[in-house]
Measured scan of single mutants.
Amino acid sequence: MSRVPSPPPPAEMSSGPVAESWCYTQIKVVKFSYMWTINNFSFCREEMGEVIKSSTFSSGANDKLKWCLRVNPKGLDEESKDYLSLYLLLVSCPKSEVRAKFKFSILNAKGEETKAMESQRAYRFVQGKDWGFKKFIRRDFLLDEANGLLPDDKLTLFCEVSVVQDSVNISGQNTMNMVKVPECRLADELGGLWENSRFTDCCLCVAGQEFQAHKAILAARSPVFSAMFEHEMEESKKNRVEINDVEPEVFKEMMCFIYTGKAPNLDKMADDLLAAADKYALERLKVMCEDALCSNLSVENAAEILILADLHSADQLKTQAVDFINYHASDVLETSGWKSMVVSHPHLVAEAYRSLASAQCPFLGPPRKRLKQS
């Protein structure tokens, strides 16, 4: 649940008159999402009104509101027999009622949201009550392989729920002597030191190019640089560091992050930047690179990204790559990247197969709970 924001200063709310007192009302909304995959969808019983329910879910471990999704594969009634019906059901509720908006969509073979439908307002739910769409999607369109909505005969539904909580009022009075504290510009100011090479005390040599930097900042941000300058190493004695395995453009992006906490060109060089972040123990930059690479996972590059993640101990990226390969196994196994990995990294192939087997055979063990970014 997000923290209630402070109200904007009255002088910034309007260029008009300023009242002596004010009130700011925040209506709290808890948002969460749920993904439900139905394997072997074409084998569902086709009687009209037949119901399939998901397991229950909530916004978190401490949330007492429990929900589930309900599907009628062949419609709810005679009117909707040519459609799939989809509903959000409130299973248990400690209150007399709650209000919530919802959005349903289908994830296609690429994991993209399609055929989205959402409620136009927050509906009133009581325990045992459901709301949804009797005519969510035509069955003939859903079952047509050309539309790519049932890869490997799996129907994957994605649901986003927004639950309306209580409202909170914050009130106060205006004073004539309003003090406005300026925003912190530390990142910009440190970035200026790097860009202008002011007050530098060490030189970093990268592929024949020299960059002036500040030992204190490098040591504070990177345990690797800290070790170089702290001990009686040649880098500490000469205040000069030779860097041979990072390209200059990648190095500059890494230094921008060290000084400012930002990497504006990360998406263009996420793979190389991940390697640099791993070498210099820049954990936050490493996770930022993992996130960017996750966003660009595809059938063509899944094997290469899995190898990269394994090489640099990028655990979150590795998990996402394995899950992606499992979901698109029939396509990924035909790529040149996968065939190369079979020869060069057989242990990763074995890991992917083990994960695929456990996903398809849940009876082999208890269900695993899916539970950071600093």
Rank of each mutant, 00 (worst) to 15 (best):
P9L: 02
P9R: 13
P9C: 12
E12S: 09
S14Q: 05
G16R: 08
A19I: 04
S21H: 10
C23Q: 04
C23I: 05
C23F: 03
I27S: 04
K28W: 05
V29P: 14
K31M: 05
K31G: 11
S33H: 09
S33M: 14
M35Y: 08
T37E: 05
F43D: 13
C44Y: 03
E46C: 12
E46Y: 07
E47A: 07
M48L: 06
E50M: 01
K53P: 02
K53D: 09
K53S: 03
K53R: 09
S54R: 01
S55I: 06
S55V: 11
T56S: 04
F57L: 02
S58H: 07
S59F: 08
S59E: 12
G60K: 10
A61K: 08
D63I: 03
K66W: 03
W67I: 00
L69A: 09
R70V: 11
N72T: 03
P73V: 06
G75C: 09
L76D: 13
L76R: 12
E79M: 05
S80V: 08
D82E: 10
D82P: 04
Y83L: 14
L86Y: 08
Y87S: 00
L88Q: 02
L89H: 11
L89G: 01
L89P: 13
L90F: 09
L90M: 10
V91D: 10
S92E: 14
C93P: 06
P94C: 11
P94K: 09
K95N: 11
E97R: 11
V98C: 14
A100Y: 06
K101H: 12
K101T: 14
S105H: 11
I106E: 01
L107Y: 08
L107S: 10
L107P: 12
A109I: 01
G111N: 11
E112M: 06
E113A: 04
T114C: 12
T114Y: 04
A116V: 04
E118H: 13
E118S: 13
S119D: 01
Q120I: 08
A122L: 13
Y123S: 05
R124V: 12
R124D: 08
R124S: 12
R124T: 05
K129Q: 14
K129A: 04
F133E: 00
F133T: 14
K135H: 15
R138K: 12
R139N: 02
R139H: 13
D140A: 07
L143E: 13
E145Q: 15
E145H: 12
E145W: 13
A146D: 07
L150I: 04
P151V: 05
D152L: 14
D152H: 15
K154I: 09
L157K: 00
L157S: 13
C159W: 04
E160D: 11
E160S: 04
V163H: 06
V163M: 06
Q165E: 09
Q165Y: 07
N169T: 02
I170Y: 03
I170G: 06
G172K: 03
Q173N: 03
Q173F: 03
Q173D: 01
T175W: 04
V181M: 05
V181D: 04
V181I: 03
P182A: 08
R185E: 06
R185C: 08
D188E: 10
D188W: 08
L190I: 08
L190H: 05
G191A: 02
L193Y: 08
W194D: 04
S197V: 15
S197P: 01
R198I: 15
R198H: 15
T200D: 15
C202L: 14
C202D: 11
L204V: 15
C205Y: 06
V206F: 13
V206T: 15
A207G: 15
A207D: 14
Q209C: 10
Q209S: 12
Q209A: 15
E210M: 11
Q212N: 11
Q212Y: 08
A213F: 13
K215Y: 09
A216I: 13
L218W: 14
A219V: 11
A220D: 15
S222F: 11
S222D: 02
P223W: 13
V224E: 10
F225Y: 13
S226G: 09
M228L: 14
F229P: 11
F229T: 15
H231R: 09
H231N: 15
M233P: 14
E234H: 14
E234D: 14
S236A: 13
S236M: 07
K238C: 01
N239Y: 01
E242K: 02
I243R: 06
P248G: 09
E249D: 08
P264G: 02
P264R: 06
L266R: 02
L273Q: 04
L273K: 01
A275P: 02
A277V: 08
K279M: 04
A281S: 06
L282K: 01
K286G: 03
V287E: 06
M288I: 07
C289E: 01
A292E: 11
A292Q: 15
C294L: 11
C294Q: 08
S295T: 12
N296A: 06
L297Y: 00
L297H: 00
S298W: 12
S298R: 06
S298G: 09
V299S: 08
V299N: 08
E300K: 07
A303Y: 07
E304Q: 10
I305L: 10
L306A: 12
L308T: 09
L308I: 01
A309M: 00
D310Y: 05
H312W: 04
A314H: 06
A314R: 10
D315T: 12
L317E: 00
L317G: 01
L317Y: 00
L317F: 02
T319F: 09
T319V: 14
T319Q: 04
A321D: 05
N326S: 06
H328G: 06
A329P: 10
A329G: 02
S330D: 08
S330H: 08
V332W: 01
V332K: 00
E334Y: 14
S336E: 07
S336Y: 08
S336P: 09
S336F: 05
W338M: 06
K339V: 02
S340K: 12
M341D: 00
S344H: 12
H345N: 11
H347P: 03
L348W: 00
V349L: 04
Y353Q: 00
Y353H: 11
A357D: 03
S358C: 06
A359H: 02
A359N: 04
Q360W: 12
C361S: 14
C361I: 13
P362E: 08
P362R: 15
G365Q: 09
P366Q: 14
P366R: 14
P367T: 13
R368P: 15
R368A: 15
K369N: 03
R370L: 11
L371N: 15
S374R: 12
